[in-house]
Nucleic acid binder design. Sequence first.
DNA 1: AAAGAGATGATTCGATCCAACCCTGAAACC
DNA 2: GGTTTCAGGGTTGGATCGAATCATCTCTTT
Lengths: 260, 260
Amino acid sequence: MNRTGNGVSFNLEALPRFSERRSLGDRVLKSLRQAIVRGAIGPGDRMVENRIAEAMGISRTPVREALHKLEQEGLLERLPRGGFVVLGLSRKDIEETFGIRGVLESYAARLSALKYQRDELVPLHEKAAEYERFLNGRDLDALTRINTQFHDLLYALSRSPRLIRMINELRDQIFRFRQIILSNAALARVSHEDHKRMLERIEKRDADGVERLVKDHIMRGCAAVLQAYDDDQSSFNPSPGRLLEERLRAGGEKRQGKGQ
Amino acid sequence: MNRTGNGVSFNLEALPRFSERRSLGDRVLKSLRQAIVRGAIGPGDRMVENRIAEAMGISRTPVREALHKLEQEGLLERLPRGGFVVLGLSRKDIEETFGIRGVLESYAARLSALKYQRDELVPLHEKAAEYERFLNGRDLDALTRINTQFHDLLYALSRSPRLIRMINELRDQIFRFRQIILSNAALARVSHEDHKRMLERIEKRDADGVERLVKDHIMRGCAAVLQAYDDDQSSFNPSPGRLLEERLRAGGEKRQGKGQ
DNA sequence: AAAGAGATGATTCGATCCAACCCTGAAACC
DNA sequence: GGTTTCAGGGTTGGATCGAATCATCTCTTT
């Protein structure tokens, strides 16, 4: 981490700063995306360049850039009267997204099974073990994170950057509901079994097997999310039964008192 | 002039104008994307806000917006020294892209086979017939266009807008080579046979069958493109064997004499 | 002559300004 | 009283300007 390079000219402190070297627009993009994915900006919320810029104490230019990119990513939608809304998910949206994830991720797993090199499975085994260690705990957040990392590691073996990028984008769209998936302890345990089976198949270069495993795995996640959806749509959709505009006008501005 | 606020008169002429109501940024985006896809701006060409804006006689703001979006779409890449380059395709890129298209489009076709309604196949049959009529002609451009339309119609039946959007983006990335695919008369004929078989399967709701057909169809296209690639890499890559920068410095500005 | 420091040019990024647009509400007119 | 028109506010879009960045080139110094 903080390599305080004492005395030597190999000052590595300059390197970490590179991550902060992003443009303001990029940081705004990332920040807003995170806020949406984490649910801090629920679905149905209206986003206006002006207010966001003011709240952040910056000009509208980088905010505009970020909003446009978010729209392109499918997280936002242009409002007829100006501004954007955070998209909610209908039941159909959930089914659609999981369907695409199913084919994409199972394909990635297939490629991984075919292409991985000898010692590249070690990190995967480690990650699976780490997952197991958290299974009995109550740290859902960690479980979610480790689960994501496992899949990331798996798909990385496919050496298909486009594919990985597309998978990540899709995952963002339903990340909010990943919590829901894994908050079901039973499902978390099943997931762990799935992971172990996947690794077995991959070691045997059984592409068909792992493809089917991953597809089933995803579809189980889909079923869990749909279950949660039927139980409580309010966390998926903008305030139900009411028009967005009405809600906005009624609710006034949300958390704007941030100042600079 | 467009303030036809009366609303009562059935003046439908006002409607078509709606499509021109795009913002400048959007038009620039579309224009540049088309230029890239059509090959007017070959791979390896450098694109700089300033020059494009000047050439178009507009400010740099909409150009910047367009370039960023093109980057997000994967057609452009940021250059370390400023500006962007149009990405070329390596053999690996081609295989990767077609692989993803294979799973995505075959999945879309599967959904279409399951979801289509009674009379929705009519336009597809018509399009296939239209394709056949052009088969013996030499109008490759028309053949390409009709072929694309056929697939668009097919996937539209899946009622999966996200999926369609992803397919379109991937198609753009290799559209330049679609010409190559269909310029092979034999392949064009095979494609037509494929289309007819797809329709047969779909009518029987044979999802598995049509899925396999489409995947094979795509993979045949992949093989054709790879063949063309091996024959002549120059149309896929920036000037071979030379660094982009060198080429740029050596070649000076390309076709900039457009002025305003 | 080689190496380093500063100047220079090209380029993107962020801020700000102005114009266009759309909706809304109210006033005026028929 | 209903309809039309006009004015106003909010919002985005485009232009322009200043600043920061980065590489290259040159000049100076050792």
